[in-house]
């Protein structure tokens, strides 16, 4: 796993994906920090985090699009799958590399917090809560993106499909609002990434939501392993 993780981290920077991802992330989060927090004269960082949901949604597919699709296209997967490593090692190596880059991106909020601390008092509990909420959200999204990347050889197809999939997850709330049956509506709401994430930005640290995001991450990584395994049997 270590070898794959390190190679993947290097590849992010060699291919330039890391620079694109980080600069867009910093630019947009900086804008939301300014527009949502600084200019409104508050020290609460929640508006920044609630705005970032949709940005994360569109940026994570850029991170995950080539992880497995490129291996398949260049036939480098043959090297990995015939090496004495397990499928979980391959998938988790790639997964944690993407997650690491996401954490690097996300940790910029501590710089914002530093700026705020200079201007006034920072509400550290909400900030830390939100930070972890975004981390869990990213963990789940990356697993979905990695899974979709395992399904295709085409990076663009992988990126577009991932954005679409994540966007559909985002729309769960509005689906639920249009369904009259209370039970179905509730069931859909319970699967909504957005409402669970927004809860955190409102200062509620909900353990079930943490479990939800981590479960999604686990399940999709499991699916990815299954896809790789199934290809051998094809």
């Amino acid at each position: 796993m270590g070898a794959i993780y390190r190679r993947e981290m290097n590849a992010f920077f060699i291919s330039g994906v890391a620079y694109v991802f980080l600069s867009v992330f910093y630019l947009l989060s900086g804008y939301f920090f300014y527009a949502g927090v600084i200019s409104s004269g508050r020290t609460d960082t929640s508006p920044l985090f609630s705005s970032m949901f949709i940005i994360v949604l569109f940026l994570i597919p850029i991170l995950t699009m080539r992880l497995l699709s490129e291996e398949k296209k260049n036939k480098t997967d043959q090297g990995l799958l015939t090496a004495p490593v397990g499928l979980w090692d391959i998938v988790l190596g790639k997964y944690f590399a993407a997650l690491t880059l996401f954490i690097i991106a996300e940790s910029v909020v501590f710089i914002y917090a530093g700026i705020l601390a200079y201007l006034g008092d920072v509400v550290w509990t909400t900030l830390i809560g939100n930070y972890f909420a975004m981390l869990f959200l990213g963990a789940a999204f990356i697993a979905v993106g990695l899974f979709i990347s395992s399904l295709t050889e085409n990076q663009m197809a992988s990126a577009v499909a991932s954005m679409l999939a994540l966007f559909v997850l985002y729309l769960f709330d509005s689906f639920a609002a249009n369904i009259s049956n209370e039970y179905i509506s509730k069931a859909i709401i319970s699967l909504s990434f957005y409402s669970r994430y927004i809860e955190f930005t409102q200062g509620i640290f909900s353990l079930p939501s943490v479990v939800f995001f981590l479960s999604v991450a686990f399940i999709f990584n499991f699916f990815t392993v299954r896809v790789l395994d199934k290809r051998r049997w094809g």
């Binding site: 590849a11 060699i14 480098t76 997967d77 015939t82």
Partner: peptide
């Protein structure tokens, strides 16, 4: 697999490295 060294038809090279 640890007993085998394999050169597939298309060498599995990461061309950016």
């Amino acid at each position: 697999k640890s007993f085998i060294g394999y050169l597939p038809e298309i060498p599995p090279l990461y061309i950016d490295m």
